[in-house]
Design a protein around this nucleic acid. Structure first.
Lengths: 219, 219
DNA sequence: AAAAGTACGTGTATTTACAACACTTTATGT
DNA sequence: ACATAAAGTGTTGTAAATACACGTACTTTT
């Protein structure tokens, strides 16, 4: 089967930057390519949009097919379409991003991708295509989303915390997402002002130091 | 000549929202379509991306071809790709926007567009495709760009003013772009704090009221 | 010449957000 | 008891945003 047009058409893909925190460090989900070009290179997951699906649906489907990840709230980042970004043919990609708790994710490779793995953002392999640029843009957007407003993305941050958490643990999560250290007192003022924290009246124990109060959050 | 692919490919277009102020009201540049679908409907200018040009280059070219408008600093708004947004075939569009001084623009219609005209934003005709949504998104983005930061877009605002202008004239321009009235005293503080205004020591005359001081701006 | 009309020009007080900054408290381990 | 380690806690300064009202200077009309 083949498809013929009177004028040349580009291919259109959706590529998805999935961020998570693992072991206290920001990670991104990458796949190893099984096919040329960039065979055996790492890349952000993505693939061709089908003719009957919306862009975000295509992104969701590709993400599921290539990594097994489902049910994440994607946000569009923008379109990338430099003429030579793919050596095969003209390929324009629409980039999406999301922040997810990776513990609940079951990674599964597929036919298109040999392997799906989490990589620490400060220890990335060389990436296929222009995925380094896309990922850098997504990283910047993530930091803004988490701090500037009370977005859905920001509330995902609490998914990285246990149901009962200390304020120090919460601060570590937000520092990781923003990528820079935060002042302890200012952070406590900020989080108390922007979320409904519930003081559980319980304390940590077992540390060789003063116990911390435990909180939960009402999102 | 025809082009054949193993898999179906969407068409990709660039559509451009060009805003300007005319007669004190925010206007947008629209074209009347000469071809189906939506023949004789009004639409934001745009067209198919060529295989060897970047998205923004394609946007610039289509804008020039369809309206004669050149040399404007486009910014990407995002990609729109609902499966049924074009009845002919699957068409994904990447939207761009810009704010320009329309007086210097020479409008010229082309083969694709019967007519290019400015429409007041509060008196729009029905638009082709999903252009009403794209335009609404662009309108929101414009208001943010003009006020939230000192962006290039914001400095275009002064292009709507004569070289020597009064602060009341400047306020009217920013109110039009933002779409809401501004407090006179606060506006004067804000503009003085954010731009280099030069008091020319001259005054208006001929009004049936107290004359206003004339300024110019050093961008 | 006086009065009315019209837009010009100006200052202060309040609130909010953000940034900087240091010491006391309370547990654990030796 | 003492050392260690992290928890917890307020104030101050600055900048930015908001709200708000009246005297001034010129033109036109009577």
């Amino acid at each position: 089967m083949s498809y013929t047009y009177d004028y040349p058409h580009p291919a259109v893909t959706a590529d998805i930057c999935i961020f998570s925190i693992r072991d206290g460090a920001l990670h991104v989900l990458l796949i190893r390519r099984l096919v040329d070009p960039f065979r055996d290179s790492w890349a952000i997951p993505g693939g061709f949009i089908k003719m009957d699906e919306d862009l975000i649906e295509g992104a969701r489907r590709e993400l599921q097919e290539e990594t097994g990840v489902e049910g994440v709230p994607l946000e569009q980042l923008g379109a990338y379409g430099a003429p030579d970004r793919d050596p095969r043919e003209r390929v324009i990609t629409v980039a999406f991003m999301a922040l997810v708790p990776s513990d609940q994710m079951v990674l599964a490779a597929s036919t298109d991708a040999a392997d799906a793995r989490w990589f620490a953002m400060d220890d990335l392999p060389p990436l296929a295509f222009d995925h380094d640029r896309i990922l850098a843009d997504a990283r910047t957007a993530l930091a803004h989303k988490v701090t500037n407003r009370i977005t859905e993305t920001a509330s995902v941050a609490f998914q990285f915390l246990p149901r009962k958490f200390t304020l120090a643990e919460a601060q570590a999560v937000f520092e990781t997402l923003k990528g820079e250290p935060l002042d302890k007192r200012n952070f406590r003022k900020w989080i108390a002002a922007n979320w409904d924290l519930i003081d559980l009246g319980e304390k940590t124990s077992g540390g060789r130091h003063r116990p911390a109060a435990l909180y939960s959050v009402d999102l």
